[in-house]
Design a protein around this nucleic acid. Structure first.
Lengths: 167, 167
DNA sequence: GGGCTCCGTCCACTCCAGCGGACACGGCAG
DNA sequence: CTGCCGTGTCCGCTGGAGTGGACGGAGCCC
């Protein structure tokens, strides 16, 4: 809204924003279960392995807690690549809102390939995505899979790994 | 096509891009006449006066010539505010393309208020904007104004000053 | 000629983004 | 109990983002 048609006389500077909240929000969105959620150190290692770029665990914490905020483009790009969101997610409210809806669906599917496919659903309304989410949940229930929000009593493999697809 | 939906299995990193070209492109787009185009020093002063944020002339040159490329969000925000483009302009190819079309129309009008109004035309197709540009050029010709691309043989005043429309 | 203003380019410096390495705490196996 | 691993939190350092102030050169006026 601030970038679109805004009310005239808007003098307040919304400016650069709760990057910390957005980052920690991404983490909790990808790992809803606190027990299984990796810490900053583990996250940092996963980021290096999947994207090639490096972000220290300390810096991740500093960003998530709002201690540092003036990130460079490079680091922001690494974060975006890892979480599978467009770079604008961190700087554009509208994009972040739209992606958040997709994220709910994506994390429900719990599969990298399907998730990247879901992210291609650019343009679908949040309502449609919400409906899709319900359908998927029901389908999983029919197939005797565990519901979203609880973890799979899986065979030991790790399906929950965000994969960097196109930026 | 590198920015659109890419072929599956794309492992190459499109990466962070010709920021320099984009910046200098913005400058030449806003000041088509080389004679009247301000230098980096003057630009830096105008930026400070209009947006409040500070960017040194040296750094502007370093960015435009590609010597430095890893900008922080803060500086990028100042640049975006001054040139009246959304922040994503510098990082998203599709946005930059769309804005560039609007910019052609905006610079044709040569008026800050009208330009900011033109920038609100989000969603219009480049073809429509191109048609609008033709219309405006014709209208100006009827009103005996100078054509776009040539400078006004004006009274000495300087109408060409980008203004942060959301100030 | 000498003075002024603007330009692009460069170098030396400041300061903070970003990182490595510690700390105290808690869980778990030997 | 004592290690061992993982967590969140902190401090101190390095490197580069970002700046200030110079330099030579080109136009313009006296």
């Amino acid at each position: 809204m601030d970038s679109g048609e805004s009310a005239p006389g808007e003098t307040s500077r919304p400016l650069l924003h709760d990057l910390g909240e957005r980052l920690s929000g991404l983490i909790t969105a990808l790992y809803p279960d606190e027990r299984r959620r990796p810490g900053y150190a583990r996250l940092a290692r996963m980021i290096r392995e999947t994207t090639g770029g490096t972000i220290s665990a300390t810096y991740l914490w500093e960003l998530a807690t709002g201690r540092k905020r003036n990130v460079t483009l490079e680091q922001l790009g690494v974060l975006a690549a890892f979480f599978g969101v467009p770079l604008e997610y961190f700087i554009n409210d509208e994009v972040s809102r739209r992606v958040n809806a997709q994220l709910a669906l994506a994390v429900a599917l719990r599969d990298a390939k399907v998730r990247s496919l879901a992210l291609r659903a650019e343009g679908l309304s949040p309502a449609s995505l919400d409906a899709l989410l319900t359908i998927v949940n029901e389908a999983r229930r029919v197939e005797n899979l565990d519901r979203v929000g609880e973890e799979a009593h899986d065979t030991g493999e790790q399906p929950d790994r965000p994969e960097a697809q196109r930026s």
